[in-house]
Design a protein around this nucleic acid. Structure first.
Length: 203
DNA sequence: CTAAAGATGTCCT
DNA sequence: GGACATCTTTAGA
C-alpha cells in the first residue's frame, strides 16, 4: 500500500561523535531531538523535551560517583550506548552514555512529547492521557518499552532504539534547574527542559 | 550476610 | 502534601 506522505522523514541516527562530548552540552543539545523506538513493524517517536546530566567522580548524584560497579559499567564504556537501570523495585530509567570511553557521563531522558505510535504508548502506559505518557523518566521508559534488555544497546546503529535530528528545528528556549529526585549535588543546575512545553515533568 | 536507600509513580486525603 | 508499592544494588558488619 502506497503512502501519501511520511509523518517523519527518516534520518540517520546521531553519530557517536555527538555523544562523545561534554555531558552538560549533550544534555542541552538533545532537547528537541527525536527519540525513536522500533519493535517489529511498530514505530514509537517522541520529541525529547527534558533531560538531566550526570557526571563522574565530581558529581555526588551520579551512579559513577564511587567508581565502577556492575550496575554502572555502561557509564564507563563507549559513548552513544544506552544506560538503563532499574530502581524503586519497579521502574526503569533511560540514559545515553556521553564522554569518551573510560570517562563516566550520562544524560537521563526525563520527558518526551509523543508524536508517533501514541496508541501503543497508551496501551503500555495504561492511560489515555497523552500528556501523561512520557512526562517523567520511568513513564518515558515504560511508554517506549525500554527495559534492561536494552542496557548497553548501541544507539548509533539505527535499530531498536536511537535518536535523530529534528526535521524542522525551531529556536529553543531552554530552562535549567537543579536535578529532581536526588539528595546531593543540588548545587548543580543540570536539569534542562524546553520552557513552556506541556510535556515536561515539572515546571 | 544484612540492611537501607533509591536519578519514581500512583493513589489517597 | 503524604503513604506506599517493590526489589536491585550497594555499603557496611
Amino acid at each position: 500500500m502506497k503512502r501519501l506522505y511520511r509523518a517523519s522523514v527518516p534520518l540517520n541516527p546521531l553519530a557517536r561523535s555527538f555523544y562523545e562530548r561534554d555531558t552538560v552540552r549533550v544534555a542541552k543539545e538533545l532537547l528537541s531531538k527525536v527519540l525513536v523506538r522500533r519493535i517489529g513493524s511498530t514505530v514509537l517517536e517522541g520529541i525529547i523535551v527534558e533531560t538531566e546530566a550526570y557526571g563522574g567522580e565530581n558529581d555526588p548524584a551520579s551512579h559513577a560517583y564511587r567508581g565502577p560497579t556492575r550496575r554502572n559499567r555502561v557509564m564507563y564504556g563507549p559513548p552513544g550506548h544506552a544506560y538503563v537501570y532499574f530502581t524503586y523495585g519497579m521502574h526503569y530509567c533511560l540514559n545515553v552514555k556521553t564522554e569518551p570511553t573510560g570517562q563516566p557521563g550520562a544524560v537521563l531522558m526525563r520527558a518526551a512529547q509523543p508524536i508517533r505510535g501514541i496508541e501503543r504508548m497508551k496501551k503500555e502506559r495504561r492511560t489515555e492521557r497523552i500528556k501523561d505518557l512520557a512526562n517523567g523518566p520511568a513513564k518515558l521508559a515504560q511508554a517506549f518499552i525500554v527495559t534492561k534488555a536494552l542496557n548497553g544497546h548501541d544507539l548509533t546503529l539505527g535499530r531498536k532504539l536511537f535518536i535523530v535530528e529534528t526535521t524542522n528545528p525551531e529556536p529553543l528556549d531552554i530552562a535549567s534547574t537543579s536535578r529532581i529526585g536526588i539528595r546531593v549535588g543540588l548545587e548543580k543546575t543540570w536539569r534542562f527542559f524546553i520552557k513552556g512545553n506541556r510535556f515536561v515533568s515539572k515546571q
